[in-house]
């Protein structure tokens, strides 16, 4: 029974859903289209339910850390309190005023500035890392990487004169030829990998949804 519930049944559901959805794309006729769209809706519901599970899981982890008297208990306490308050504020539909809801105010005055500031610090960190790159790593590829970064940086700046035009032209070539080539190769690899994983899941070779 355990084998059926933990292995056979999940595999059957995954294979069946994959095959039906694939048939809807390969043969866009009824009833394959209806079945395909229904499967997509189910996937959205399942993904939404995953957010609930994720929320409960992060609460469990940090509650455990809080009970274990380990390091960073204060951060865990702040996280738990913030999550519960946000859940309550959003679910209750509290409003700051008639025009703004509490959740929007919270987002625009807490979350947005914090994430923007963190993104701005990324520029400082990237600059410092570029400065000390040769301090930690040396080699042809490192020099190549630094040269590419300089070209893109300087080529993006709308500088006047020949230097600006030359840097802009070099940057355009760099982005359209080497960078795009690498990115296409990466995307093709990702596409093939996605196709292979999808087929393995549909056939039943891979069972990430099964415990055994």
């Amino acid at each position: 029974m355990e084998r059926f519930t933990k292995r056979i049944l999940p595999t059957a559901i995954a294979v069946g859903a994959g095959v039906l959805t694939l048939l809807g794309y390969l043969f866009p006729v009824e009833p394959f289209i209806t079945v395909r769209d229904e499967m997509v809706r189910w996937a959205v519901i399942v993904a939404a339910f995953a957010f609930i599970l994720g929320f409960l899981n992060i609460l469990r982890v940090h509650l455990g850390r809080l009970a274990g008297r380990g390091a960073g208990r204060g951060y865990s306490l702040v996280l738990i309190v913030t999550a519960l308050v946000s859940l309550f504020v959003t679910s209750a539909g509290l409003a700051v005023d008639s025009a703004r809801r509490m959740s929007d105010w919270w987002f625009g005055n807490v979350l947005y500035p914090l994430q923007a500031a963190a993104a701005g610090l990324v520029a400082i960190v990237l600059a410092f890392s570029a400065f000390r790159l040769l301090r930690h790593r040396r080699g042809v590829e490192v020099l190549f990487f630094l040269a590419a970064a300089l070209i893109v940086l300087l080529g993006t700046i709308p500088l006047p004169g020949v230097l600006g035009t030359a840097l802009a032209t070099l940057r355009q070539w760099w982005m359209e030829v080497p960078a795009m080539a690498g990115m296409r190769g990466f995307l093709i690899g990702v596409g093939l990998g996605t196709l292979l994983v999808g087929l393995r899941v549909i056939v039943g070779i891979d069972r990430p949804h099964s415990d055994v």
Binding site: F128, F131, R132, L134, L153, L154
Partner: peptide, 16 residues
């Protein structure tokens, strides 16, 4: 800022 960062990269390359 991009000029500064580019300059830091060049200085860092030369120094190290």
């Amino acid at each position: 800022s991009q000029w500064v960062v580019a300059a830091l990269m060049v200085v860092g390359m030369v120094v190290f």
